[in-house]
């Protein structure tokens, strides 16, 4: 079957599905065991130097920020990461902390606040190497991994430089003779997802848009779930159709109220516009960004201490702004 075109971008992790299956067989606990731990413990146990890592979110919605900040807090140990996925606030922090060596890029920007200064510095200086993908492409790559197949045939990126700088391949479809783009499965070492509620075993539920939580959860060798609320399993079983992530996919459960801050959590709290603006402003220079990281991460022992610093009044005001269903 002739390969018509080959992206020259790097494939940062090979789609070795047999190895992934073997990992799942041997390393994924299928026991109902208590996985509750702190951000610090979860990151210490599962995120290491050169880990291939992805966060799940949508814009500023449901961002695993308390986990992302903990990764930065452990920068001295972790040093370098390989990152895949979309991101606004959390990938911006990692880029600004100069921890991202390679990046599967689909969209990194600050939406209404324009382009990411941290991304610009990291890529334009050559410190972060990139491969291009599209939003659909990256989530389909995770879907392939979740399905246990090495690639998915799609119309993704056909005819573009996006394909040229990706690691996809175009072949002639053996059934119709038409060009078809093969997206290689994307297997993460670590995935991070913030949800509305989870029980201590990891059964997790999301309200509103679910982004690519379904796919990322199933494409990750290790999955860290942080939750606004830790609930009894009985509460989960009341609405089983909402359980996008069942316990057997999960390695760590972290209780993180306001875990998406300064992003939002649908129906729970609104985003902190002032804090997002403060980051946009600070991240315009490398020095400004480092000062911001010091103030909100390095000088703060953990997520609870950050919430204390922000103050109940401000957090309650954000709760009051949350849209009702």
């Amino acid at each position: 079957m002739p390969v018509l075109e080959e992206g020259q971008g790097e494939l940062f992790q090979p789609p070795d599905m047999d190895a992934f299956r073997e990992w799942n067989r041997r390393k994924k606990s299928r026991r109902m065991e208590d996985k509750l731990m702190t951000e610090r413990e979860a990151v210490e146990r599962f995120v290491h130097e050169n880990s291939y890592i992805g966060t799940e979110l949508y814009g500023t919605v449901r961002c695993p920020m308390s986990l992302a900040r903990e990764v930065v807090r452990q920068r001295e140990r972790i040093k370098n990461l390989r990152v895949a996925g979309q991101g606004v606030l959390e990938l911006d922090l990692w880029l600004a902390a100069d921890m991202v060596r390679t990046l599967d890029l689909t969209y990194i920007g600050l939406e209404v606040y324009g382009i990411s200064h941290a991304l610009r510095r990291a890529v334009e200086s050559g410190r972060t190497r990139t491969a291009e993908w599209s939003n659909a492409g990256i989530t389909w790559r995770m879907k392939a991994a979740a399905m246990g197949v090495p690639f998915l045939p799609t119309t993704s990126m056909l005819g573009t430089d996006t394909l040229r700088y990706s690691a996809a391949k175009v072949i002639e479809d053996p059934f119709t003779g038409r060009p078809v783009c093969l997206l290689p499965a994307l297997i993460l070492d670590v995935g991070m997802i913030h949800v509305h509620r989870a029980d201590r075993y990891g059964n997790a539920q999301i309200e509103g848009i679910s982004g690519f939580a379904f796919e990322l959860a199933r494409a990750s060798k290790r999955l860290i779930v942080s939750a606004e609320e830790i609930v009894d399993s009985e509460d989960i079983r009341r609405q089983p159709d909402r359980t996008i992530i069942p316990y057997y996919l999960v390695d760590a459960v972290v209780h993180a109220p306001f875990g998406s801050y300064p992003g939002e959590m649908p129906y729970t709290y609104w985003r902190d516009e002032d804090e997002i603006r403060a980051w946009v402003e600070a991240s315009k220079t490398a020095e400004g960004a480092e000062t911001y990281l010091k103030r909100t991460i390095f000088d703060v022992p953990d997520h609870a201490a950050l919430l204390e610093m922000i103050g109940t009044e401000r957090l309650e005001a954000l709760r009051a702004l949350a849209s009702q269903r």
Partner: peptide, 12 residues
């Protein structure tokens, strides 16, 4: 010269 956000959903 300028790294922009990337394709996002636009390409598909």
């Amino acid at each position: 010269k300028v790294r922009l956000p990337g394709s996002g959903g636009a390409c598909e």
